[in-house]
Structure formats: C-alpha cells, structure tokens
Nucleic acid binder design. Structure first.
Lengths: 249, 249
DNA sequence: TTGACGGTTTGATGTGGATCAAACGTACCG
DNA sequence: CGGTACGTTTGATCCACATCAAACCGTCAA
C-alpha cells in the first residue's frame, strides 16, 4: 500500500483526503512527474506509519538531525524556546505537511514538534531524500518548492505579528485553518481546534485571555459560533473584511 | 577574478571581508567541497557585478521568478505588502546573503527587494543552479542549508515579534547587526545603519517614534551612543542581559 | 544663502491588550 | 461517584506602545 508519495505534491488539492485514506496514488504523483519506479524508490526508504500519541514529542530542539517528517494524520505544533524560556509556537501542522526543515542548516533541530492529538507520521531520512533528488529533477524541484513555501508562510506570519491587531490576527488564523481543512476535503465552515487558547495565543503573539475574549466578541457579533474547541464560521465574508482593515482604509 | 563563490559558503567567517575585496577564493570554497572546475562552472552562469542604486528595486512582488540574487556589496531590505497595503519588512540583507528564495514556491516573487544604499549583486539563474546542484552533492547540500537557515532566521523573528517587548526587540536587532558586521570583518561595536527608523520599526513591529524613543533611552542609560544613523554599542553585556529578561525572571 | 523635503526627536494623550484575580466547565482518574 | 487538574471565561485594573502634534536637523538643489 503506497501511501506516502502524496506528501510530495502540492497539498492544496481536494483529492488529498482521498489520498490520505489510502487509494491509488499514482495520479497524485504526476504533478511531481514521478514514474512508478521512482515512487517505489522513494517509498523504499521512507519509514511509514510511525505513531505519535497526543502530547508526545516528535523531536526536540537541539536533537541531532537525521530526518524530515511528513504528517500523515493528526496535528502537530512546532515551537522555539528563547534562551530565557519563552515559547513561541511557530506553526500548526496537519496532514500532508513536512516539518523539520529548519534542522538542515545546523544539523540539529532548532524547534520542537509536539503532537496535539494522536497522530501518524512518515519519517524521511534526509540523506536519502537528497540523493533521490539528485536523480529525479522533478522531485528536487518539488522539494525546493516545499522549503520555499515554508519561507513564504513564515513571512506571512511576520506580517501578521508585526502589523495586525489581535482581532485581525485571530480572524486570519481562523480563515487559514478553514482553508486548510477545505483543501483536505473537510468542511471549511465547521471544525475542531486541536490546540489550546494558550497555544493559539503563543502562535499569534497574544495572551490566552485575549484569544478567549475575542472569540467571545466574534460570537456576540455573529461572526462565529464557539463551543469549547468546536468552531463554526458563520460569516466568512465579514471575517475576511476584518482582515483587510474593515471595508475602507 | 573569481569573486562569487564565497556566496556559497557559510557567511560567518572573518575571512569573508577579504573574500569580498577580491582575492583568491579557493580556500573559501573548500567548506562546500568544490573543486576548481566546479567553481568555474558555477561562475560560468552567474551574472556578476550588476549594480543597484540606492532606492532601486532589485525585484518586485508578483514579478516572475528566474533568479536568486546574492548581495555582493551594500544592503537591501525585503518586504511583503498585505492586501490592504501594510508593509512588513521581512529582513535586511548584507553582503554574502542570498535573497529571492521565497519565489521558488510559486515561481513569482512574493516580496520586494530594495537597495538601501548603492549596492552590487550577483544574479544566479535558478534552473542552472538546480542543475549544478544535481551534479555536485556538496553544493546541493549547501543550498539546502542556505534555505534552511532562512527558515531558522524567520522563526527567530517570529519569536521576537510574538514574545518580546519593544526594548528587547531593539536590543536584539542591534546585537544581530553587530554580529553580522563582525562576521564580515567590520567592527561589532560601531556601525552605520543603512535603514530609516521607520524601516527598523516595520521590521520589528513597532512605530518609528518608538524606535527613536528607545534609542534615546538606551543612550541615556549609556548602553549605546546614537548620532543620526551612527551607532556605537557601549555596553554589549547589558544589552544582552536586556534580551534575556534582565538578570532574573 | 534660502528654501524645501525627508527623516528624526520629543511631548501630550489615548487605547489595546497585558496582568491579576476569581469563578466556572470539562475531562480524567482513583 | 467525587475530586483534582487543566483549560476557559469574564471582570477590574494597569501599562506599554500607538497616535497626534510640533519642532528640529541634515541634505540637496536652486
């Protein structure tokens, strides 16, 4: 059962949900231009089906780097810790996303990855991926794009943290999650948050009380419905307007 | 005059200043493991010596991607613009740094790069770099590391923007510049800022008035001396302590 | 020299979000 | 079942930084 190659294509296609559930993946690999043999080779060295229980570290900062990890199912947070112990969540990662790329530069992990729910991951030994990239230009290109996309994402977070106010950040966060659930074939309107208010706050640069207050405010304004970690987006249009400095400006 | 290969090694060595001024670079390339032929090939397709005047765009967001750029001399800022027109400076880039990697993912630039002073850059056509990476594993690995380092840097900025207060951010900023000047063979104690207070503020997520006020406060406290854009770090130790939540905490 | 302009400093005031504190809900576990 | 722990909500207060405003300075061009 060839189940991992989908990780090497763009993760924004609706078919991805099907891919995850284990059907034939050949067509999903075509965008990368891999043939059957090449898929086989890729899968020969990927360690599949490793499980991580909720709360478990996938890797810790400082640990020596050997592999990248592809989230196969579930959800992870990655975070960096400053010298004086402050945590900054750098991202939430769901199925189809590759994490650990920060570790390539120093050959040690610079952030930690923790499972937010019971999850499954694929381990991708880096040296072997590198070698295969040399043989398969399309795979090489694809992997460069994956790394580049992470840089673009980080720039987006910098914009969010540097320029937006709490309300806007939270709207952006919800819309981002919505879109990612949608691209995985789930409802973009209603979903379950895997992370605590504190983790959301750490990611968005605000305190957990502020996250809670703004959720409540959004609910009062009929923008969303919150019940615990269940979120329903009632008015995505207005949420988007909130992002772009209301209607004018 | 082989003058560009140094861009493909770690930029943290003191010899780099010498490298920039144009002496033989062979030894500087050894860390990447390139032979003479390979250096020649690398340099065969790199367009060297392109100049950019102060204020000039090196590339603009949305422009199609063809090349990465290595800063040979001078200084650039890169910035993203949100849909509603807010600018976030994502970085300041000096000699030896490679910019444009964000564009690989979508094959369009996602940020703009502007020269902060008269500068020189090398243009590196991406397809040819890719091809050479396939032939030279050490170069491939090195380029992965360059991209990874950018991700690590971005995570550091996220920590700064998400967790630190204005004073700490500015201290971190000055110390970071200091270190980068030092690694290029310049004084880590005194240097010239190439960017305006507003650009610093945009990068650090604060207003230009706040930047100015904190510079003044640092000066009052004998931490630094500021005169216009000339900076002198008088007490680097205390600046570092400022970073790590003062002495205690 | 004069002016204009972009950048910087400094002051006065306002406010968004942090902090402190308490009560409440939910889930897990003996 | 009841208790403990963890996460969440909500209120009251405070403060860091934004905003608004004015003066100042260095540079360049006429």
């Amino acid at each position: 059962m060839a189940q991992v190659s989908y990780l090497f294509k763009e993760v924004s296609l609706p078919q991805l949900k099907a891919a995850c559930s284990g059907c034939s993946l050949k067509e999903l690999c075509l965008p990368v231009g891999l043939g059957t043999d090449e898929i086989a080779e890729l899968e020969s060295f990927i360690h599949r089906g490793r499980a991580a229980k909720k709360g478990e570290y996938l890797y810790r900062a400082e640990a020596p780097f050997t592999s990248l990890y592809a989230v196969k199912a579930g959800c992870f947070k990655t975070s960096v810790i400053s010298e004086d112990g402050r945590e900054q969540v750098t991202g939430f990662h769901m199925s189809g996303e590759i994490i650990g790329m920060d570790a390539i530069s120093t050959e040690r992990h610079t952030c930690s990855a923790i499972a937010l729910e019971d999850s499954e991951i694929c381990e991708i030994p880096f040296v072997q991926l590198e070698e295969l990239c040399r043989k398969i230009p399309a795979l090489q290109r694809h992997f460069y794009k994956v790394m580049s996309r992470e840089i673009v994402r980080d720039h987006g977070v910098m914009l969010l943290l540097g320029n937006m106010k709490a309300e806007e950040r939270l709207a952006a966060f919800l819309l981002n999650l919505s879109q990612r659930f949608q691209s995985r074939g789930y409802s973009p309107r209603a979903f379950h948050l895997r992370m605590t208010r504190e983790e959301i706050g750490s990611f968005l640069g605000m305190k957990l009380e502020t996250v809670s207050r703004i959720f409540s405010r959004f609910q009062d304004e009929r923008l969303i419905r919150v019940s615990n970690r269940e979120i329903e987006l009632l008015d995505m249009l207005r949420l988007k307007q909130l992002l772009n400095g209301c209607s004018s400006k």
